[in-house]
């Protein structure tokens, strides 16, 4: 009585979550490129990707609904379904935050206040966290997930240092407040993205060990 349809549905669910993850990776990466280089063309292309993320999220939700209603998954399968539901919500949030980032280039006129060195590093770490948490999900690797979540500390440290730096710059020269505020939002978005990656990692730990832990 091996349940072929059921196993196919589970495989489809995992695939869809990974597709959404890949899309989130692309959107995050491109939005960072567009904001650092103030590349309006790339920014617009990135913004156009959001509906695709919506469709994927919807597809995942329907698949999960069907699985629960029709197949009553248990044990590892149950954990896959539960974690897929949570992970897809986190990924969708990451997409949303990245889209916010991609809107920033259109609002900044005439170049950045300063070279975005630390901000770029934040973006790189966030991208790495996202890639690794997806890999941990794919391979059900709790250690990779825990290691990935540990990177959140670096993001937080960078966030505070850039934050303080920007506040100080604004205090000296109130004329830059508008530009600096956009950058404040940018680092805030990146910090949130890293948090969502931590959530994904928590779900991966639950998926592979049934332990419920907090990672940030």
């Amino acid at each position: 009585m091996v349940r072929e349809t059921y196993l196919q549905q589970l495989a489809l669910l995992k695939e869809s979550v990974l597709s959404l993850g890949e899309l989130a990776e692309k959107i995050l990466h491109d939005s960072m490129e567009s904001v650092i280089n103030l590349d309006l063309e790339l920014a617009r292309e990135t913004l156009d990707l959001e509906p695709k993320a919506d469709r994927l999220e919807y597809k995942i939700e329907v698949t999960i609904n069907d699985l629960i209603a029709l197949q009553q998954p248990l044990a590892g399968d149950l954990r896959l379904v539960v974690s897929a539901l949570k992970i897809s919500a986190d990924l969708r949030r990451i997409v949303g935050l990245s889209i916010n980032i991609a809107k920033i280039p259109g609002k900044i006129e005439g170049g950045h206040l300063k070279p975005l060195v630390d901000t770029r590093r934040m973006g790189d770490i966030a991208e790495e966290m996202l890639a690794n948490s997806l890999k941990a999900f794919e391979t059900r690797d709790p250690d990779l997930a825990k290691g990935t979540a540990a990177l959140d500390d670096d993001v937080d440290k960078l966030f505070y240092s850039v934050w303080v730096e920007l506040i100080e710059m604004m205090a000296k020269d109130p004329s830059i407040v508008s530009k600096a505020t956009h950058l404040l939002f940018l680092i805030r978005y990146l910090e949130r993205i890293a948090d969502h990656c931590c959530n994904v990692c928590e779900s991966v730990v639950y998926l592979s060990t049934a332990e419920r832990i907090k990672l940030n």
């Binding site: 009585m1 091996v2 349940r3 059921y6 998954p73 248990l74 044990a75 590892g76 399968d77 149950l78 954990r79 060990t209 049934a210």
Partner: peptide
């Protein structure tokens, strides 16, 4: 939710 044995998991997940 998290059986200890592979055969248990295989059975309850069909």
């Amino acid at each position: 939710e998290n059986p200890g044995e592979k055969s248990t998991e295989d059975y309850i997940t069909g």
